[in-house]
Design a protein around this nucleic acid. Sequence first.
DNA 1: CGGATAATTTAGGATAGCCTAATTATCTCG
DNA 2: CGAGATAATTAGGCTATCCTAAATTATCCG
Lengths: 230, 230
Amino acid sequence: MSVNAAIASESLTRSVEDYLKAIYQLSPEGRPASTSEIAHLLALSPPSVTGMVKRLSEHGLLEHVPYRGVQLTDEGRRAALRMVRRHRLIEAYLVEFLGYSWDTVHEEAERLEHAVSDTMVERMATALGNPVVDPHGDPIPTVDGSIHEPACTALSDVPVGETVEIHRVHESQPERLRYIASLGLRPGVRVRVLDRQPFDDLVTIEVGGDQHVIGRELGHVLQCAREGDQ
Amino acid sequence: MSVNAAIASESLTRSVEDYLKAIYQLSPEGRPASTSEIAHLLALSPPSVTGMVKRLSEHGLLEHVPYRGVQLTDEGRRAALRMVRRHRLIEAYLVEFLGYSWDTVHEEAERLEHAVSDTMVERMATALGNPVVDPHGDPIPTVDGSIHEPACTALSDVPVGETVEIHRVHESQPERLRYIASLGLRPGVRVRVLDRQPFDDLVTIEVGGDQHVIGRELGHVLQCAREGDQ
DNA sequence: CGGATAATTTAGGATAGCCTAATTATCTCG
DNA sequence: CGAGATAATTAGGCTATCCTAAATTATCCG
């Protein structure tokens, strides 16, 4: 059975879909993902990951070099991008039509992405006017599996004095997202970097008239577009 | 752990949810359901059903008298009605907002009913204006688990000469539903019974100026409200 | 270079669900 | 009533997925 057939006939299990999406998200560019990274992201034990990785590589969805990591094959990447498209479109739909806010959509989408049909995904896309990004600013892959990841700079890396626009907010925990929103930070918002401490990458920013100090962790959650980017 | 806690914490698996819903649907009134009825409805082997039934009865969701059949407990019935509510609301939502027709919603709802959160179900209900019936005319249970099954008469049992209104269409196969729709039959439509043959319960009906002969099977799929009903 | 540490894999086992084949219970009817 | 038919259950197995504990490999550093 070809993998295309496998994908088309929806024969991938929830678990498999989760693994593929996780591996893609660990490195959209295709760098090998390690067993422990995958295990951590999926909240599973490393031996479980090794076991599944073996099965997936037998099915041609990824390549596994023992002790070295895994990389998605074209088929695996296609299946992963299909899940990413679903997830992000579902998030957008829930926010637009069912009153969800960006901190609560992730969990719901995480379950729905395995249950909706391709038909339903495309109807949601149509209802939304075929959006290009989701509520967190993440780009939505097209049906044919292409995705444009625009060049981004972590807020931590923006030079002092520059004004940038927040493009993406790489976070899924509801509590953290609410905190971020409480600072007035969300995709599309413009931020000016006022200062950077010589320790810990702490940057002081100005957004909507308020000033905040941002640490390294949050500074990498907030991905910005500089003038030179793109 | 109480069953309420079990239900609340979503600890029921897809399979368990399917079994409970199936048993409820085999007899909303609570007559015992047989192993083979359940197996047939869920497309499983009878031994599989016996096995699951044992587990469910250990968990207090149903009572099993060996060789005699099973009946849902209050907790089991509550969980089943929760699934029925989900299913029917999802069907209504898909038809209203995502361009589905009544012959295609069932399959989609069958998957989604296990994946949506209670929150999402209630938001869909709100978006729909808290509907009382689904696209097939089936009543939607309330959140607290009550349901009003209005008295219905199978079209096959309607006396000749009477005019009745179609209330419910008890069918889920797309092809059959399309056929029914092609005859102009759907909930709310008024039908006059012109004739009944002395064999096979064949009835001739008039609907929207056309005449059709309806056999026993379809005559029971079409549930009608007579003057005396309710 | 070799040994400690960290990462990974192997070994062995559990659980949920499903199946077929064989057995047992119930029912029906002459 | 008892024999055959039918329905249900038990017995025994399979697959997917997960786990912990033990063994192995890779890496890094003195």
